[in-house]
Nucleic acid binder design. Structure first.
Length: 194
DNA sequence: TGCCCGATTAACT
DNA sequence: GTTAATCGGGCAA
């Protein structure tokens, strides 16, 4: 399986986000298949970079191919991949992973056995993969990370992002259609779970 | 300095 | 469906 290089991220965040669905993401050999992401463009009121550069979001203003980790609700960590040319301050939030490698480690860190709940949410997957502020600003193409292109075609579901209070209707959430490891199901036009 | 609130989660009823 | 947990960023004063 081909390793994803930094140049992969030097594109529109809306091109990178769906291309990450199905990719393999590991931290210290623990992780699996990315099944859900959200795009955050710097012109988007919901993006952390929208109001300009601060100490917290500084990594978003740096070059693409690095991780931006932030604390959510004072409790959880969430991980983003920085995209677009340096300074455009856009990133993709990794929201859910299908666990494949290091499942015993994930279970220990998460304190639960159900594989379906190990990485199905941005805070959950960071706990399972051991990602925290210590990884903020690290490059994706070097240890402790491993990132590989998907090895087969996938069907991608699209919908509005989750948990926002701004720009709630923009359809910038992408997922692996039919995956059992999504943080929430996508809805089809008929209203059936996707 | 003080105050409000969030790209969440799990444990409730 | 509802809510507590928990804390740093951002802004008003």
């Amino acid at each position: 399986m081909a390793r994803i290089r930094r140049s992969f991220f030097a594109r529109s965040v809306h091109a990178v986000a769906p291309d990450l669905i199905g990719a393999i993401f590991l931290c210290h050999g623990v992780g699996g298949r990315i099944v859900e992401v959200e795009a955050y463009h710097h012109t988007d009121p919901a993006a952390h970079s929208y109001g300009g550069r601060t100490e917290r979001n500084a990594v978003m203003f740096g070059p693409p191919g690095y991780v931006y980790v932030y604390r959510s609700y004072g409790i959880h960590w969430c991980v983003n991949f920085v995209c677009e040319p340096k300074g455009s301050a856009s990133a993709v939030l990794i929201r859910a992973i299908e666990p494949l490698e290091g499942i015993a480690t994930m279970r220990r860190r998460r304190g639960m056995r159900d594989v379906r709940l190990l990485c199905s949410g941005p805070g959950r997957l960071c706990e399972a993969l051991g990602i925290s502020r210590a990884q903020n600003g690290l490059a994706l193409d070097a240890p402790p990370f491993e990132l590989h292109h998907r090895d087969e075609e996938v069907e991608i579901a699209v919908g509005p992002r989750i948990g926002l209070t701004k720009a709630v209707d923009l359809p910038w959430r992408y997922g692996l259609k039919g995956s059992r490891f999504l943080s929430k199901p996508f809805r089809t036009r008929s209203g059936k779970p996707d």
